[in-house]
């Protein structure tokens, strides 16, 4: 039944819009569409971003793995490599700190009226995407394919049942959040 729903392209566009509206609503209410909140996190003076991300990750992880265990959802791990994740991650971080929004929150920031996110951010992001598409074939050959590890997940790496990872990771994150909260951050 769900498989059939996934193949209906027109309905999928509508579902995408609804999911996005709820997600954007939550991003704004959480405060993470704001430059000051994001930069505050990078300066370690405001821990809103970490709190939201860790809570969302844990909730998402447990639910999605339950759905997977029930056989009604699949994981889609992206193939990765050291060359792509390490270099890309470092470059992304520099841009993130300079812009003060990520690609998701920049859309939300435009929605709440932040014009620096629109004229500065979105325009720069589109040019960055265009620039990357020019260099893609060369980068792919020289950097992105280095240290390829394919579609590897943590449970596969350790050859264990996914719940053996999910359970301690969830408790670890909860402990970290309790610590952040009690230390007044």
């Amino acid at each position: 039944m769900l498989k059939k729903l996934h193949e209906k392209n027109g309905i999928q566009l509508g579902i995408g819009l609804v999911i996005g509206i709820i997600f954007g609503f939550l991003l704004q209410k959480g405060g993470v569409t704001k430059y000051d909140v994001i930069i505050g996190q990078l300066l370690l003076t405001d821990f809103t971003v970490v709190k939201i991300m860790l809570t969302a990750m844990t909730t998402g992880m447990i639910g999605v793995h339950l759905l997977r265990s029930l056989g009604i959802a699949q994981l889609h791990p992206k193939p990765g490599s050291l060359g792509s994740a390490v270099t890309g991650g470092l470059i992304f971080g520099v841009g993130f700190g300079v812009l003060g929004y990520c690609p998701g929150t920049v859309a939300g920031a435009v929605g709440q009226g932040s014009l620096d996110a629109l004229f500065g951010g979105v325009v720069g992001i589109l040019i960055g995407a265009g620039l990357f598409s020019e260099f893609y074939p060369k980068l792919e050959k020289r950097i992105l394919s280095r240290g390829d590890f394919g579609e590897l997940t943590w449970p596969q790496l350790f050859r264990v049942n996914p719940w053996v990872i999910i359970t301690p990771v969830s408790f670890g994150i909860i402990a970290l959040l309790v610590w952040i909260e009690t230390s007044g951050l």
């Binding site: 470059i91 841009g95 812009l99 620096d116 720069g124 589109l126 960055g128 893609y136």
Partner: peptide, 25 residues
């Protein structure tokens, strides 16, 4: 200065997206 903020945001966006695409995220 709006111009200063927007030009910095612009270059931040270019760098951020280039990195994001390198990491395929």
């Amino acid at each position: 200065s709006r111009f200063k903020r927007w030009i910095v945001a612009f270059f931040g966006g270019v760098i951020l997206m280039f990195g994001a695409r390198m990491a395929d995220g």
